[in-house]
Amino acid sequence: MGDALAEVVQRSRLQPARGRSLAFWGVILLAVTEGVLFAVILFAWFYTWARTPQWPPEGIALPELGFSAVRSMVLLSTSASVWACERALRRGDRRRTWAWLLVTLGAAAFFLGTHVHEFVAVTPDEFLWSDNAYASLWWTILNLHGAHVAVGMVVWLYVLVRLGRGAYGPDDDVEVSTASIYWHFVDGVWVFVYASLYLLPNLLARG
């Protein structure tokens, strides 16, 4: 095995690294623990729901499923644009890398902007976070997810600036692929958040 190690050392100096990066494993474990974080707060949502006779409580309308579905589709579509961005980078197509990165950032900005708009302008007419446990959980969960989207956007902006300064290439994509794993995680969590906060209450109320 000593020879094998010596060979690896030689090859590593000449060629791009093989295998998963350390960052890959780091971000996977980050996604695991963050996934548990969302599982815990969704547990709190269902726990409180199970102890409340009416959900949402008296005086609060069921969450609307029209515009929220559009927002969800826009967010989830960024998983595809991120994938396309990575693929373009690996093929050395910088123009498409740029294009898909900008598409991703634009879609994320739309999702986050509409979230902030609802938080500060629309829903306060209907309910405030301090009204009851439902409202507290509603806004805590949505803002927690929104914060993750914001962090993801900052990461993509970092990638954008680095790309603009000539960084990355087919053999130098660790930062981009690590960022995209985090981004897929943020998208994936939204599926569970949307199902728990929007879909299930509607389904059970009409069921």
Binding site: T48, W129, D131
Partner: peptide
């Protein structure tokens, strides 16, 4: 959040526990 922003997760009078 309960202490600083008056959220009601643990308040039985507001559906919390």
């Amino acid at each position: 959040l309960s202490r600083a922003l008056d959220m009601r997760f643990f308040d039985p009078s507001a559906g919390g526990d």
